[in-house]
């Protein structure tokens, strides 16, 4: 899982793949129709896998179509959601630079405070140490 921008990019690529997959499915599994009363669907004696078209039953085909269409819509909605949560849409470059500078200053202050606290801790540890050492059992 990458950052949001990469997620968005991946989602768009997946949408493209879904386009191809949908067309491929329809192309491969549609039913065969006659154009006039005199025509008839020629029987093929090859294995189903080898035929150019491998018709699925009408209800299965319909259900698959619906599913593919729903998946496309879902993916598109995912993309829109990802767009709307892209980080920093309401920050301009100047805002960001100011923000970074402020944070840098605050970090310096906080780091100094931390160092000070560490020093204080060492002192107090030393004091505690002497006190503990000075306690003698009777």
């Amino acid at each position: 899982m990458g950052d949001r921008l990469t997620q968005l990019q991946d989602a768009v690529d997946q949408l493209a793949q879904q386009f191809v997959a949908s067309i491929h499915y329809i192309n491969r599994h549609h039913s065969l129709e006659t154009l006039g009363p005199g025509d008839q669907v020629r029987e093929s004696n090859k294995e189903p896998e080898q035929n150019e078209v491998d018709p699925h039953p009408a209800d299965v085909f319909k259900a698959a179509q619906v599913e593919l269409a729903q998946d496309l819509i879902t993916k598109e909605q995912q993309i829109e959601y990802l767009i709307s949560i892209l980080p920093g849409l309401d920050n301009s470059e100047q805002d960001q630079e100011r923000n970074i500078k402020e944070l840098e200053e605050e970090l310096k202050v906080a780091e100094a405070q931390r160092q000070e606290a560490v020093k204080e801790r060492k002192e107090i540890m030393g004091r505690l140490d002497t006190v503990i050492r000075s306690i003698r059992r009777p």
Binding site: P87, G88, I100
Partner: peptide
């Protein structure tokens, strides 16, 4: 992408600041 990179930097700095303060 450059915008997002700056944005990530900001959030990283923010979390470091929070961590330092919590430690102090």
């Amino acid at each position: 992408r450059p915008h997002q990179a700056r944005e990530s930097l900001i959030s990283m700095m923010q979390s470091q600041l929070d961590r330092t303060r919590a430690e102090t």
